[in-house]
Amino acid sequence: MSLMNTAAVSLGSLLQEVADKHRKRYRFVTMTCTDIGDGYDILYHFDKDYELYNLRLYLKKGEELPSISSIFFAALLVENEIKDLFSIPIRDLVIDYGGRFLLTEDAPVAPMGREGCSRSIDIRLQGAPEEEDK
């Protein structure tokens, strides 16, 4: 099963497409970021009349993401969150928390990323049974 109403956008045309959505009175819903190994899969979700429309952006690691918060103010919170959790550099944020929106100074770097977490977090607690595949 794949997502309905999903269009791919490139980094160059992103702001244009988003501004177009704003003009056509779409509501900004949220963004989803997934670490897919060599890059990030970033989804912009918009809503109109209970129907969800998504823009899909592939962002290579190390690339900078332009912020859409000047078009949709509501995006600034989720963009700051992505900046924290994935350590993606985002430019032109309306309010930039500088990577301290959700995380504190001694928190792990990019905890939601697949790798590159400077401090490993051991989620399995002591005494937990070893994983066994059926």
Binding site: P111, M112, I123
Partner: peptide, 10 residues
């Protein structure tokens, strides 16, 4: 915010 972030998504 960030006082009760628990990393549930991870």
């Amino acid at each position: 915010i960030g006082y009760v972030h628990r990393g549930i998504e991870k």
